[in-house]
Each structure stands twice: as C-alpha cells, then as structure tokens.
Amino acid sequence: MLTRGYFIGEIVDALSDIAGQVSTRGRLGLTDLNKHAEDFFKTILNHLFSLSLVNLNSERSNEPGLDLGDKTNKVAFQITATRTSAKVNDMLETLSDEQIAAYSKIRVLMIAGKQSSYTLDAGQCARASFSAEDIWDIHDLGKRCMDLTVDVLQLIYNHVHSELARIKIELEIPDTDGKYPTTLADFIEAIPKPQMSDLIKFNKLLEEEGVEEDLATTQNAFAAFSVALAKLPRITREFLVMLIERREIDRKHGNSRIEINADKLARISRYPDNAGELRVLDAYGFVWLDEPDEAGESAHWRVILPGLSPEQRLLFLQYMEANGIPLSRPLVALDFSAF
C-alpha cells in the first residue's frame, strides 16, 4: 500500500521540478505562464485548502491582477513566475474595488520561489488587507501537504502524476533554431519497417505440403501481410499474438481455422481495453466475431491473417512451431527473415 510519505515525497519532488524549470525560464527573461499552468495549480490549491477556485482568465481575456478566484470562500490568487516586490506591488495596484470586495483574502503564488523579504506598498497592502505572509511559493504548498489525510494526498498525487509531463513540456525552452526538446513525435509510435527474406524456405514448405505456388506469389502474399501488420499499433499486434497463442481447435473444422471463445477471452485477459483492441483488429481485417448457432452458446473470435491464403495461414503457424520461432518475431517485430 502506498503511504502518506510516498505521496508527499512524489508531490513535493514534482512541484520542485516545476519550480526549477520556471526559475530557469525566469533567468532567461521568460516569465509567462499559460492557462494550463494556472489550471494545474488551481486543482492543487483546491485540494490543499478545500477551495473551489476557478480560472478568472477563462471568463475574460485577462482578469487584472488575479488569475484564480473562489467567490464563495472569498479567496483569490495570482500565479506568477516573477518573484520581485515590484510584481506584488503591481498586482496590488491593479486590483479593482470590485475585486477587493469580492475577495477578502488575496494571495500570490510564486512558482519560482519567493525572496527572503519584500518591500511592499503600505497603502496598497492596507487597501487589500494584504501582507508579506500572503506571498507563497512551492515550499508553502509542500508544508501544507504534511497536514493532509492520505485520501486527499492521493487525489493530489493522481493530478500531479497525470499532468506533470504536459506541464514540463509547456515550460520547455526552445533552442536557437526555435526547436523544443520534446515534440509530438516523441509520443507517437514509429511505423515499423518489416524485415523480409526471399521466402524460399517457406515456399518450399508449401510445395512439400502439396500447395502448388510459385515463389513470386508467396513473396507477394507476405508483402501484403506485413503491410497489414504495420498498420496496427504495437500493443494491438501483441494482442493478436495472444489470441493466436490461446487459440483452440475449431469446433467444426478442426485445425483448419484459428479461433478463440469470446467468453474465455474475457476471462483470461485482464487487459483494460480488450474491446478496443478487438475493434481495431476487426477494422483492419484481422478478426471477426462468429456468432453462436444456438442460444446459450459462446460466440468465437475468428482470427484471419490478411494477405495470406487459408493454406498459407496454417502452414505459417506450423513453420514457426517446427522451427522454434516465437509468434512475436514476425507478428510484433515484423521480422520475417527466417522464412
């Protein structure tokens, strides 16, 4: 079981990483924080202090002085990457009478860390009931975590864990050519490139088994099969391997077909998206659902290997078993070099 200490450590480490990244940006003169960063801290503050903050910049292009507000609890925040006294005084000066009336407690959250002391405009502080104690940073949020129950800590941990990568990407600094360290390509699975042999060995097996087929026909069939496989995501190809490995003897046609009981599949696979994988395989012609003939019987998923004829399909499996070739080599890695 995950403990309070684990959650606190993970939360504090993540927030410290963000603070360090914001600080680096600040030293380069990049002090802007986008709406996503504001929303990230909005959720954390809501969990930490049982608030109902909303992003005020969603209601208008820019709420002067303030970024987050909870009118019910009369609390508001400015979220900033700038840590200076001038920044705080500028925020206080831009506050409207309407804002001061709506929010009895106004705070500044300085993501990059706060200074050891602040020189604040006494008149503006009195007007907004503001003091240096209302200037917070990441360390103040970390201290608050120490007082929370494990249930609340887990909510914050889940939020931080799910959003941290995106926040860090949003805060990346481009190089001199305007390129960022992380791009969408880093999160997109590469299209696999099949490794093909001349298929002479497999064509010879076909001949030995009485299947009259010239080499070009075999080569074209496997080329089409590999192209079809390459269109599937890797995890879907792994799911296909599982279906074949857990296949059973066809009820009506012996070993001439590849199928698996649909009810059995639902019980042996704890993968969270069986239905999604089957939809993808169905859409790309790798499986189809054979409905039962009689009420009370199970449906069966029939496996097809598009591009291969029924004879090629069965001898393909026989060839791999006879030569000790794991299904994952051709079906997942798209390595047909042993054929």
Rank of each mutant, 00 (worst) to 15 (best):
G307F: 03
K252N: 14
K35S: 15
A112H: 03
D13N: 10
E10Q: 08
W301V: 08
N158C: 14
A14Y: 05
A81D: 03
K179L: 13
D70E: 08
L171R: 05
F339E: 00
D17C: 12
D177Q: 09
L95Y: 03
R234S: 06
K87C: 04
K74A: 12
I188A: 02
A228F: 08
A322V: 07
Q318H: 12
E38Y: 01
V227M: 12
S328A: 14
S50W: 07
R279P: 04
I44Q: 03
E212K: 11
N73H: 13
L30K: 14
A224V: 12
L66T: 00
S116L: 07
E321G: 05
L243T: 00
D214E: 14
D39Y: 06
F336K: 05
S162Q: 09
H161Q: 14
Y103S: 06
R166D: 14
G9W: 06
R279Y: 10
A165R: 02
N220D: 13
F225H: 15
L278V: 00
I167A: 01
L153P: 06
Y271F: 11
D293F: 06
Y103Q: 08
A37W: 02
E238K: 11
D32N: 11
R237P: 09
S129H: 14
A299Q: 06
I325T: 13
L148I: 08
A230T: 01
I138W: 02
R313Q: 00
T217R: 11
M1I: 12
E93S: 13
I191F: 06
Y157P: 06
L331C: 00
M146Y: 09
H161V: 11
W301I: 04
D13F: 04
K71P: 07
A333H: 14
P326F: 03
R247Y: 07
G9A: 10
S337F: 01
R144A: 15
G69Q: 01
T80Y: 00
R107E: 10
E98V: 13
K74W: 06
I44S: 02
F77N: 04
N73V: 02
A14L: 00
S85A: 09
D151Y: 00
T43V: 15
N203P: 01
A338G: 02
R25S: 03
